[in-house]
Design a protein around this nucleic acid. Structure first.
Lengths: 191, 191
DNA sequence: GTCTATACACGGATAGAC
DNA sequence: GTCTATCCGTGTATAGAC
């Protein structure tokens, strides 16, 4: 029944940890830090409350773990590869971003939920600021290479638009079609 | 000491209710629905827990009251007045919106906090969707009058940018200067 | 209208058996 | 590694005195 070798035990432990993280993501994302409970998460992951503490020593540690792994999946979205044309970079970046909204909605919602909490988790706000600056900087390069006027401001507008459609797709019932947004954006800047 | 006439009693009651709503706004806004507690709100408003229930019969009813009053202050932001030039309408609307972000940050944070909560408060998401459509529609009219190409999509981009800077000013440590954003936006569309 | 006291449920965290 | 039992704080809501 139960696994016998050390390796099997470790695999089992890893599998459980993965299940916990997945459940934690779902619950934290939809109910926020305060609204989520160890009980709900444990039940969702199919384990007992007590066992949770064998994996994560507190609710806050668990939240930080989920946060960290969620934030990592956002890496490498906006790119500026000098060996490619600026239009290619633009298309790729916009596509990456919009794909991300669709595929990682739960993680993005989590980051917003946690980020809105005053005081708690303010490392997150710093990280978000850094990511923003990086995105603006990359799009500025792209726009400069495309000879677009006022490239830095154009980049800020574009990044704001992208952040805006994130906001909208989180907060609205039927947000405007992301596909149309993608098409129109590319048409606007790449013709 | 205590007021004797009926009118004074009513004024007193109204004053207390106002204090409760103000405290509730602060606490709900920074800690979300689950994170806020009747105790914290009552303490902040300088009354006892029990008295809260004399004004609002449950935490949820209180939240809905705060939500409603917050949502109302967002009215009349994006305008389209046919007796004025489209440029005037544009400037006025953008100015209204950016002023709103600065002045009503707490209320906006509240709407975001509550809106991110899955299931609960989904009337809010419907209202947000309606407001979005209305904003897009008004900016579309403005852009059409300005002979800008693809006015509806341009309106969606603009509204997304505005929503984006809301998002950014809520989630980032030092968001990009709203004043520069305002200036550049107006320069871009009104010259 | 306001307070204090209290009932009662929920949630975080720990202990100890298996 | 996993579960059950349990402690204890916190929170919503109500009752009753003033």
């Amino acid at each position: 029944m139960s696994p016998r070798t050390k390796i099997q035990l470790e695999e089992n432990r890893l599998a459980t940890e993965t299940r916990i993280l997945k459940s934690a993501l779902t619950i934290f994302s939809s109910q926020g830090f305060a609204g989520a409970s160890i009980r709900k998460i444990a039940r969702d992951a199919g384990i007992s409350d007590g066992l949770m503490y064998n994996y994560f020593k507190s609710k806050e540690v668990l939240a930080l773990a989920v946060l960290k792994s969620s934030f990592q999946t956002l890496d490498e979205t906006i790119i500026y590869d000098e060996t490619k044309s600026p239009e290619e970079n633009f298309k790729q970046s916009v596509n990456n971003f919009i794909d991300l909204i669709q595929k990682e909605k739960t993680k993005i919602r989590l980051l917003a939920q946690m980020g809105l909490h005053e005081k708690k988790f303010n490392q997150l706000n710093q990280a978000t600021t850094a990511r923003y600056e990086e995105s603006v900087s990359k799009f500025s390069e792209i726009f400069r290479a495309m000879k677009i006027e006022n490239p830095v401001f154009e980049a800020r507008i574009l990044v704001a638009s992208l952040d805006g459609i994130v906001f909208e797709s989180l907060l609205m019932d039927q947000p405007f079609s992301l596909e149309k947004f993608r098409e129109n954006l590319i048409k606007k800047y790449c013709t």
